[in-house]
Amino acid sequence: MTSHPPRIAAWLLRTLGSGNEIEVLLGDLIEEYLAGRSRTWFWWQVLVAVFVTFLDDVRAHPLLTARAAAVGMITLVALDYLAFKALNAVEFFGHPWPGISVAADHVAGGVRAPTTIMSSWFYLYEPLLTLLAKLATACASAWLVARLHGRLRTCAVLAFTATLVLTRIYARGIAPVLSPDAPQLAFWFSSVWYQGARELAPLFMSLLGGLGWQSHRAVAVR
């Protein structure tokens, strides 16, 4: 066993945990770790603490949490729409932007993809730029949620992230029923790197938001 408790876990607790007792709790965890508890135990306690304090905030502020999730989702849908419109208005190397459905066809086997845009750059850039646009809209939505919820920003962004993940899971579950294009879309959305980046972006923003709040609080205490 090393003498230092897991730094990343401690940072995660200070960043994503809420409540007045986080520093006291962290002291307890360090004391137990130095007394012989394992790193796994430390990490488990931190993850439980983040979850428990999040639930406590949700229980204490259910309306604010619901508002945070709603604001985040509405903003995300609006920004996604604007980004899609903007990309569609652009021409790349003389070709119009095909949108995500063409990319889906590419990934699904290129059965219906127009041959005029099957060049190699398009294989790379179209999905990449679409992903970047999605990341930007998710980050911007989470940033807005964080800005609107001050002291509860961590809880708000976590609530938005949880809603986003749940809606994705729900959408994937019903996708085959809703649209004849769904198998291709489901295939596209199931690509791990794309889906992972898309869902982790708000969480990343919540970390940034949390960090900002921590430094703000540290200055206020000093």
Binding site: G19, E21, V24, L25, D28, E32, Q45, V48, V52
Partner: peptide, 26 residues
């Protein structure tokens, strides 16, 4: 926190997370 959680675990026979103890204490 630590002795309270330990007492619950050892005497009460119930595994407990420290965060749950502090949330309940709050």
């Amino acid at each position: 926190g630590v002795p309270i959680a330990r007492e619950i675990e050892e005497t009460g026979g119930r595994p407990v997370a420290l965060a749950s103890v502090y949330t309940a204490l709050g």
